[in-house]
């Protein structure tokens, strides 16, 4: 039997897509680290954060960044989403296997699929509000959080760090021979650490915002 995919012009596409999925994933990880750090400047007061965001906006880094990130998110969605079970019988098979197997990493992959979908929604709503109220200012952000938008951001935080932590872990598992027990510890430290950090930052925004809302 001749496997006809080998006769295609570019049988390397699967490999390329896999790599692009990984590279865009890594880019988004770095972006999120940066994003989290910048937001954390709120702890030093609204002025510090405004200073930083003004500087980024003057250099057009914030604007270009937003467009760039949307682009990267979409590419990541398409390349990583190739692995999703699209047919009903595939979905049934993977669901039956996962339920029976009681194997955490296999469950986490389903978590990855669900959080990935949710992130698309969250990011769309988040960007809509940030970009329609441009420029980014601490007071604006805090009043948004305090006017009950915090209930939107809290689950978003959890979903994003879960997706990021699990994804980063899987990159290491797939490409390196590092001991998985150690990688697992790092994964959970990273996920819990960043969720805690982000929730704290959210709480700070909320507290500042409440002063203005009332």
């Amino acid at each position: 039997m001749i496997e006809q995919w080998k006769l295609l012009k570019n049988p390397r596409l699967a490999a390329r897509f896999d790599l692009i999925g990984m590279v865009t994933g890594l880019l988004l990880v770095f972006f999120m680290f940066g994003h989290a750090m910048m937001l954390a400047t709120i702890v030093f007061g609204a002025e510090t954060m405004d200073g930083l965001s003004m500087w980024l906006e003057d250099l057009y880094l914030a604007q270009a960044g937003a467009v760039g990130i949307v682009f990267v998110v979409l590419i990541h969605f398409v390349t990583a989403g190739r692995k999703l079970p699209l047919r009903v019988n595939e979905q049934k098979m993977i669901w039956r296997l996962t339920r029976r197997l009681s194997h955490l990493d296999t469950w986490l992959w389903l978590v990855q699929v669900v959080t990935g979908m949710l992130i698309l929604l969250f990011v769309a709503v988040h960007l809509y509000f940030v970009l329609t109220t441009f420029p980014i200012e601490a007071v604006k952000s805090s009043t948004r959080v305090a006017s009950n938008f915090g209930y939107f951001y809290a689950p978003m935080i959890i979903v994003i760090w879960l997706h990021l932590g699990i994804g980063l872990y899987r990159i290491f598992v797939k490409w390196t021979p590092f001991n998985r027990k150690i990688l697992k510890v790092f994964k959970w430290l990273l996920i819990l650490g960043f969720i805690a950090d982000s929730l704290l930052v959210l709480k700070t925004f909320w507290a500042i915002g409440l002063q203005y809302v009332n």
């Binding site: 049988p11 490999a15 197997l101 990493d105 598992v173 797939k174």
Partner: peptide, 27 residues
């Protein structure tokens, strides 16, 4: 070099955890 081989694997590592002969499948 295709989705039927190395790039189909999603890194769920059930194989590595379950192999009764403890083969180093992850690496």
């Amino acid at each position: 070099g295709s989705d039927d081989g190395a790039f189909g694997c999603m890194g769920l590592m059930a194989c590595d955890d379950i192999c009764p002969k403890d083969l180093p499948l992850q690496s």
